Simulated scan of single mutants.
Amino acid sequence: MDVLLYVAAIVAAAALVVLIVYLVTTLKAAQRTLNNAADTLANMDSQMQGITSETTELLQKTNHLADDVNQKSDKLNALFEGLKGVGETADGLNQSVRKLSAQISAAASKNQEKVAEALKWGNSIIDSFKKKKNY
């Protein structure tokens, strides 16, 4: 019976050794996985710092560009205000020309008979000069 106890103790010790070997193997695999995860996180951290610096630089450039566009827009607004003044001046000139044209047309309509008579006299004088030249 003592032998049986020794055999049981040896089997239990062997099972314990096998269990410890598997446990050590599992823990080493877990350690490698955790090391890989730590390396991945370290790489991601350095990449995130690069992305953050590039994003900050891009934001600064965008702000500078927006300021530049605003300045140029203000300059264009001043130009358009000037053009508006030119347009108003041209409109005033057009109105003056229309009034003058209307006055001339009205005066010509009033004196239409006199103008027609003057044209007839003028044509008569020209005809008589032509006839004298031909003789």
Rank of each mutant, 00 (worst) to 15 (best):
Q49V: 10
E54N: 14
D39W: 09
A37Q: 10
H64P: 00
Q31A: 14
Q49T: 11
L79W: 05
Q31D: 07
K84S: 10
N77I: 01
V24D: 04
F80K: 07
M44K: 15
L34I: 03
L41A: 15
S73R: 13
Y22H: 06
K84V: 01
H64G: 12
A30I: 11
H64M: 12
V24L: 13
T33M: 12
Q49G: 12
D67N: 10
D45T: 05
M48L: 14
L59D: 12
K75P: 00
K61Y: 09
T55L: 10
N63R: 03
E81A: 14
I20K: 05
D67G: 05
V24M: 05
V86W: 00
D74W: 00
K28P: 00
A66D: 05
N43Q: 14
L34F: 06
S73G: 08
S46T: 13
L79C: 06
S53G: 07
A29F: 01
E81K: 07
L65H: 04
L83D: 07
N63F: 04
G87H: 01
G82M: 00
G50Q: 15
A29C: 00
T56L: 14
N36Q: 12
N36P: 01
N43M: 04
Q31I: 04
K61G: 03
A38N: 14
G85T: 08
T25V: 11
D45V: 07
L59T: 09
L58K: 15
D74F: 00
L27W: 07
A29H: 10
F80Q: 13
K28L: 06
T26N: 12
M44C: 04
D68R: 08
L41I: 09
S53A: 15
L83A: 11
T55Y: 04
Q60D: 11
V17T: 09
